[in-house]
Design a protein around this nucleic acid. Structure first.
Lengths: 323, 323
DNA sequence: TTGTAAGCGTTATCAC
DNA sequence: GTGATAACGCTTACAA
């Protein structure tokens, strides 16, 4: 930048002011500096700037597993929104491991990121509070009570209600629920919502990991139990697929023998046999909203808000609708 | 760090040396510094260090779309490998847009990233060369001739051969090929491989975008053409799904009326109806290998290498096998 | 083996 | 309006 200043015939400080749009500069001076900068093809060093200003214009993004479709989409949404605002994204994949998550946060803080976007898998609130220190942080998907400057989550409750109501409208009276891991907010909220709307169906609840395999295992239990449920709500696409595998194994037809409806509308939902009735939402949107909240928090530091991303029901054939 | 030095009773330079494991220090001094650092809970500032050393220990990762399962997995693999080696990942999603890609590279270079991991969608070699300047760069998925310090790509040729051979073994003589966008290496290599092994089936080639919808459209063309092919190779899972949709529309059964085999083994391949015969590979591995190559290039700057990630055939029912 | 001092590329404070 | 000057937190000649 010294070169730019020289060429424009001004001091470095003036050059800096001109380039950063500070007020109170002679228009001529500003123009001269800008010309000089342009002709020297000058690019300011974010590093040096950050060192001086204590602002990196970088936010840390921490997820349990980037390769999961949901987190990948959220990342995309967040990245887009942040880029728009001049922020860059530093990614950390915690591999579903608490210790790893903690060190990721350390690294990020050492780097002096301006903000944090977190989908944490079961860190205790106190650990977390310490790990994020004073850095603005927004949670998404999972929310940790009392920590951070905001959270955005799916409208899990409404989603489960839509699913249950729809199956009930088809006349089902014994509805089962495949719940996912209770360590995450989306797992526990969905289960709570089910229990709230179907207290009598408690015996048809099965909790398992978010995998096809575990979903299949739990589904077999459900299918082999006496007085079998006539419909099933799966908490996620994986669990729904697990259920379909299990039903096929027991030679049960969907929806004739058991109906199925699922939280999460996978992109191939239309092409499954039968096509999958599901609650859909825009996963990018959760990243985007989270980023939006974070930008606000970094700028103004208002108080914590919680945003819910809306969900909608997509009725297909697995519930008994005929298209 | 000055504090640490004070507390240990040494000069800042000695403190720095102790903390960075420089040789030629009195063991006692080193220990004193380390103790001081520990008790002050000292964390060096990567920013300041980078400013001084011109090394950021950060690599830029640029993809056309992070939310695509393939890129997301590659990202995960790369992230893991880089983290192991002390590097951090700065992510840019170029949204399939060349201009955007170029500005992403600018941003990354301004940030003085130590290396670049690129899956670019059709930048010209010369533009690219200029955009990456002297920064070590490794391509993955797509390779740009003559640019960069290495590339890792799937074994596209072998993959297509496996698919074609398998269908031929089932007795098929007229095999069609759904090719994806020819802007990317994986699109063009797969098509070339098909043409090389099936020159007589040229009339059964259709080129389309990598989407279910466009695959469906192209498939309908294929199905409606006279002297229809009896088997189809799809260049990607999306195209295979598009084909399945098209076949269903025309009330054609797979594999009885037309057999299907696909490059890409989606995680739900087993659960489709019929289950999908496909060429499988580990997408994480491509990110991991690319990161490996990049780390090498950043450290030693050896000469450009090309790595192929192996693929395997998973025979299921869509080709005519009975499980 | 250790200390001194300069410098990485900016911005902020103060004076003019 | 603009220019010195110091400072951000670290590393590294060079000197001792």
């Amino acid at each position: 930048m010294a070169d730019v200043a020289d060429r424009a015939g001004v001091s470095p400080s003036t050059a800096s002011r001109a380039l950063n749009g500070h007020p109170g500069l002679a228009p001529a001076t500003r123009a001269a500096v800008q010309d000089a900068a342009a002709s020297l093809n000058f690019r300011p060093s974010p590093l040096a700037r950050s060192l001086r200003t204590q602002q990196t214009f970088t936010v840390g993004f921490v997820v349990p597993d980037v390769s999961s479709p949901f987190y990948a989409a959220a990342l995309k949404g967040a990245q887009a929104r942040l880029e728009q605002t001049g922020y860059r994204v530093m990614l950390m994949d915690a591999s579903q491991d608490v210790a790893h998550e903690l060190t990721a946060l350390q690294t990020l803080r050492a780097h002096e990121v301006d903000g944090l976007l977190l989908a944490t898998a079961g860190i205790s609130p106190s650990e977390l509070d310490e790990a994020i220190g004073g850095t603005p942080a927004v949670f998404f998907d999972s929310v940790v009570e009392g920590a951070g400057d905001g959270a955005v989550i799916l409208d899990n409750i409404r989603g489960v209600e839509l699913l249950v109501e729809h199956l009930a409208e088809h006349g089902h009276e014994r509805i089962a629920f495949l719940a996912g891991s209770q360590r995450e907010t989306s797992g526990s909220e969905r289960l709570q919502a089910f229990r709230a709307s179907r207290p009598r169906d408690e015996r048809y609840v099965r909790i398992c990991e978010w995998t096809i395999d575990d979903g299949r295992r739990a589904s077999l239990e459900l299918l082999d139990a006496p007085d079998r449920a006539t419909a099933v709500v799966a908490s996620s696409a994986e669990l729904a697929l697990g259920f379909m595998a299990a039903a096929a194994e027991r030679a049960l037809r969907i929806p004739d023998d058991v109906a199925l409806a699922s939280f999460d509308d996978p992109y191939f939902g239309e092409l499954l046999e039968p096509s999958l009735t599901a609650v859909a939402y825009d996963p990018c949107l959760v990243g985007e909203r989270a980023a939006g909240l974070l930008v606000e928090a970094m700028r103004e530091g208002g108080d914590a808000r919680e945003v819910r991303v809306p969900v909608t029901l997509v009725a297909r054939r697995s519930c008994g609708c005929n298209d």
